[in-house]
């Protein structure tokens, strides 16, 4: 995502400078914009999770929201890390498809647990070069409320979620560790990870059917 952004900035900078004759365009994500984005996306998601629609329909709504709100490709590539380049183009495509599928199925398999979920914005803070961290409080019935931080970056001019952080634990870092362990322990074969992901999607789908 960084590289893409830099490229975009490199393209845009001369034009905007010429047009405005002012300071270079700011590279960082505006904190209020990020917070507004998380607020509206969160409300949408909570609405979809709490709706009375059948599971398949709810899953489609959630999937649409996630595809719009999450930088699925950027996050997926970040998580595959150094193995991205060893994967064949076909494997890369398959991986991104499975990655999106696991993301969605992981949520839809636990729709029951999310019923009655509420969320609100907590404190917001700016962090790192071009990303913003937006803090939220998630409340579920019969569970102590907990705090989640959303890392929001700018992808093609739009705010997108690039990471979720709970208790200082970044989801994308943890998942990178997990995927890399699967590949390393299978002789560096990306296909082994794809097999495992396929099985996982199947398990999650079966669970949802119950």
């Amino acid at each position: 995502m960084n590289r893409r952004f830099l490229l975009a900035a490199a393209w845009a900078a001369p034009f905007s400078l010429a047009a405005l004759g002012t300071a270079p365009a700011r590279a960082e994500m505006d904190i209020n914009r990020a917070a507004g984005f998380i607020e509206s996306t969160g409300q949408e998601l909570v609405g979809a999770l709490n709706s009375r629609a059948p599971v398949a329909e709810r899953r489609q709504r959630v999937a649409a929201i996630l595809r719009r709100a999450v930088d699925v490709e950027g996050v997926g590539r970040f998580i595959l890390g150094r193995w991205w380049r060893t994967a064949s183009p076909a494997e890369q495509q398959e991986y991104l498809k499975l990655f999106e599928e696991t993301l969605i199925r992981n949520l839809s398999a636990r729709f029951g647990e999310y019923e009655g979920v509420r969320f609100s914005l907590g404190r917001s803070q700016q962090r790192t070069e071009d990303d913003a961290l937006v803090n939220t409080i998630i409340e579920r019935p019969n569970t102590a409320p907990f705090s989640l931080d959303w890392r929001v970056g700018e992808v093609e001019g739009q705010p997108r979620v690039v990471d979720v952080i709970a208790e200082g634990t970044s989801l994308r870092l943890t998942q990178r560790s997990e995927y890399s362990a699967v590949i390393s322990r299978n002789g560096g074969q990306v296909s082994a990870l794809l097999d495992a992901m396929r099985r996982q999607v199947a398990t999650l789908a079966a669970r949802e059917g119950r």
């Binding site: 200082g168 943890t174 560790s177 997990e178 995927y179 699967v182 322990r185 990870l193 495992a196």
Partner: peptide
Amino acid sequence: LDPYATFRSAYRQR
């Protein structure tokens, strides 16, 4: 897909 790796990473980050 590898709980051990997940626990390891989560523990160290946290």
